[in-house]
Amino acid sequence: MSLEFLLAAALISSTPLAYAALGELVIERAGIVNLGVEGTMLIGAVAGFIGAQITGSAWAGVLAALVCGALFGGAFAMLTITARLDQVVAGLAFTVLGRGLSSYIGAGFVGVPPRAVIHKLNLGVLGHVPVLGPVIFGQDPLVLGAILLPVLLSLYLRFTRMGLVLMALGETPEVVDSLGIPVILLRYAYVISGSALMGVGGAYLSLAYIPSWIENITAGRGWIAIALVIFGTWRPLWVFGGAVLFGLVDAVRFRVQLDNYPVDPHFLNMLPYLATLLVLALVARSRAHGRLGGPAALGAAYDRERR
């Protein structure tokens, strides 16, 4: 197995994680914890697959996943932002809901061969560039999107006024509110768009990675996405880096299984969680000094007249 092949496989494995983790990052930056990533991804995966089955177009499927992820996120936003339900409980409820709903809706599609899948791009000359050609330019558009997204997000956070507002939203919503910027509206917007990204991450599984619908297709990737946000200390490029790292582990794992390597794959699968625990410990220790911690107002519903 060549290095190029390994890197390409790593990028493919990291794509669903990257979409979901960056979606969660946007939401957490806005001050909301959404533990329902797994459920939202499943909704996206099933919506994407069914959308593609009905229309015969994989991209219509991706659009369906985007819209359904957004709708699911909108419901979550209503419960946590407007009704101010506890975010942890609501997130877990949405994990259960997404799992149940996707299994229920997708029950008739299990094992059905896909009518349309997402194909790899053919960029002609670019595909023949050494290393970059097969690793990047030979991928499908969603993989390229996953590479582009963290860059755009990073620029957005660092160099635009709206990005500044987003960071303030998670740090000190009361400041944002006192400046006359609509806290509630923006939090809705970010929860919905972040959930839409999770939906796309799910659709990548059912339309490109697997590609078909099986129950619980995400197999814990939603939880890894949450872990990645912490692992990347709430910074888009770091989160993406983490996703690629775990994608690489995933790619190596296949190799291990093939070659009967001495490390059991179960232990490799534990790595994301163990690494996150390590980062949690390091971040917690350094929080007083460094700036590695999460948004300060994370997890708290905003209530203007609470005193």
């Binding site: 635009t160 006024r161 500044l164 507002v165």
Partner: peptide
């Protein structure tokens, strides 16, 4: 200040 005052959308 940029947060509160519209100094253009790009910081």
């Amino acid at each position: 200040i940029s947060l509160a005052v519209d100094r253009g959308q790009i910081l």
